[in-house]
């Protein structure tokens, strides 16, 4: 009896560590989702002031960019809408271990699907990984399995963003060409190569950098703009061209 149950749970654990096969029960499920949801609502009241400040800052930034843009440009932006944003609340967030997930209170009902990107006012959070009717699970950028295309804002040199599991405010941008000129404090943004994120969403700034073992590519430590330990309001990004783009390039990962 013990052996059977132990083997079952061991198998479940290895499944959960294996990104491609995961079909394991998870926190996007109805029951666990709703319990997390009900109680995180109570917690909301304690953070109202902080959230207000955050919204004010974001509003300020958006307003100033609107005032500095010509009206014709704004109108043309509206015509070619490529991305749809859905606001969501974080129900459960983890950042302690190597494989971290975040649960949000929007799911298939709100037309959220796998591989949609998730951002906050400050920067990226992760990619949707599992969905249920009312909840969805995000593969956090603080997950050693996470891989996101990103680039240096200044020079457009790109690489893959991953996490080494050490600090929860520092991620790594790997495989950047050694031709790239990097200085500390440079901004790292999304590259827009994948269909998950639009181009130029802020991620963080260069904290330090070094050449990898074969001395031909850079590994950059990136300090995140987001405080991943304190997430509340996030936006899910849907690329409206996702299906078209995907059918054009079926081998895309």
């Amino acid at each position: 009896m013990f052996l059977i149950l132990f083997l079952i749970s061991f198998a479940l654990t290895t499944q959960a560590h294996d990104y491609n096969k995961t079909k394991v029960i998870n926190s996007a499920y109805q029951i666990s989702g709703s319990i997390h949801g009900a109680f995180s609502k109570i917690g909301d009241y304690f953070y109202l002031r902080e959230e207000n400040n955050l919204l004010l800052e974001e509003n300020n930034r958006l307003k100033s960019s609107v005032f500095n843009t010509k009206t014709e440009q704004i109108e043309s932006i509206n015509i070619q809408q490529k991305f749809r944003l859905t606001p969501a609340l974080v129900n459960k967030n983890s950042y302690r271990f190597l494989e971290n997930y975040i649960t949000i209170d929007k799911g298939e009902k709100d037309s959220i699907k796998e591989d949609f990107g998730v951002v906050t006012a400050k920067g990226i959070v992760g990619v949707i990984d599992k969905t249920s009717q009312k909840y969805a699970r995000i593969l956090s950028i603080l997950n050693t399995k996470s891989k996101i295309n990103a680039k240096l804002k200044k020079s457009n040199h790109f690489g893959t963003l991953g996490w080494d599991g050490e600090h929860h405010n520092i991620v790594q941008l790997n495989d950047v060409q050694d031709l790239a000129e990097i200085t500390e404090g440079d901004t790292i943004v999304t590259s827009g190569f994948s269909y998950t994120f639009p181009e130029n969403i802020p991620i963080g700034v260069v904290k330090s950098y070094l050449l990898n073992d074969t001395k031909d590519l850079y590994v950059i430590n990136v300090e995140l703009f987001n405080d991943m330990t304190n997430l509340r309001h996030v936006h899910v990004i849907e690329n409206l061209d996702f299906n078209t783009l995907n059918s054009l390039n079926p081998s895309n990962e």
């Binding site: 013990f2 749970s9 479940l12 654990t13 959960a16 560590h17 319990i35």
Partner: peptide, 20 residues
């Protein structure tokens, strides 16, 4: 253990430890 696993996205780690 499984219940805790569901809430914490840990697959079956809590279940395995509890059963042992």
């Amino acid at each position: 253990g499984i219940l805790i696993d569901v809430f914490m996205d840990t697959g079956g780690a809590h279940a395995a430890a509890s059963v042992t």
